[in-house]
Simulated assay, not measured.
Amino acid sequence: MATDELQAYGVREMSDDEIEAFLSVQTTGVLGLPDDAAPYLLPISYGYDGDRRLYFTYLEGAGSRKTTLSERADAASFLCYAVDTLYNWESALLSGSLNRVPESSWDEIDDHLADVWRPALLEDATLSGEVSVFEFRVDDWTGLKHQGLPPALEPSSE
């Protein structure tokens, strides 16, 4: 179903400012990396710089698939979404490129990663594992949101 058809159900496209605000308050999403058989999807936390760049912290093990795929990807996708109720949700789909951030530049982006949600497992493993940071530079984005009942379910004012 096309986006314009979804408007009858109360769904509408988000403006650039709404997408920007949405990304600024969320901290998790799904990174899609190209792979031979099918896209490799990875739930991941992120920091957003407010200027169309997201930052991901990777905990790497030997032969890390996400690192290998990230380094060879010409393009990647990222889906961020929040669902509060059946009739109150938002999602933003981003496409762009990934680049490793040199460790010498980590201090410059530290503020963007300071409040990122991370599972306790990642925090514990970070102390003993190799860590890298990747920048996702957004080339294009689109967002949808639904807030409130669909028009057909709204109480009548009669």
Rank of each mutant, 00 (worst) to 15 (best):
T3Y: 07
D4E: 09
D4G: 02
D4Y: 07
Q7Y: 04
A8G: 01
A8V: 01
Y9G: 03
R12T: 08
E13T: 05
M14D: 01
M14F: 01
S15H: 00
D16E: 11
D16H: 07
D16G: 09
D17L: 07
V25F: 13
Q26S: 11
T27N: 12
G32I: 06
P34L: 03
D35R: 13
A37Y: 05
A37T: 11
P39K: 07
Y40G: 10
Y40K: 03
L41W: 06
L41C: 08
P43M: 11
I44R: 11
Y46D: 01
G47D: 00
Y48Q: 02
D49L: 05
D49W: 00
D49R: 05
D51C: 04
R52P: 00
L54E: 02
F56N: 05
Y58C: 13
Y58H: 15
Y58Q: 05
L59D: 01
E60H: 08
E60W: 06
G63H: 07
T67L: 12
T68N: 04
T68P: 05
S70E: 09
A73I: 11
A75E: 13
A75Q: 10
A75P: 00
A75T: 14
S77P: 00
S77T: 12
F78Y: 15
F78P: 07
C80F: 00
C80H: 01
N88K: 11
N88Y: 10
W89T: 09
W89K: 07
W89L: 12
E90D: 09
E90N: 05
S91T: 13
S91D: 03
S91P: 01
L93T: 08
S95R: 14
S97N: 10
R100M: 09
R100S: 05
E103F: 02
S104E: 15
S105F: 12
W106Y: 08
H112Q: 13
H112K: 04
L113D: 05
A114V: 00
A114T: 03
D115C: 06
V116N: 03
A120T: 10
L121S: 15
L121K: 12
L121T: 06
L122C: 06
A125K: 15
T126Y: 15
T126P: 03
T126R: 15
L127W: 00
L127R: 14
L127F: 10
S128H: 13
G129H: 13
V131R: 11
S132V: 12
S132P: 06
V133S: 09
V133K: 08
V133D: 07
F136V: 07
F136M: 07
R137H: 13
D140R: 14
T142C: 04
K145V: 03
Q147A: 09
Q147W: 12
Q147P: 01
G148Y: 10
G148K: 09
L149K: 08
L149G: 00
E154G: 04
P155G: 06
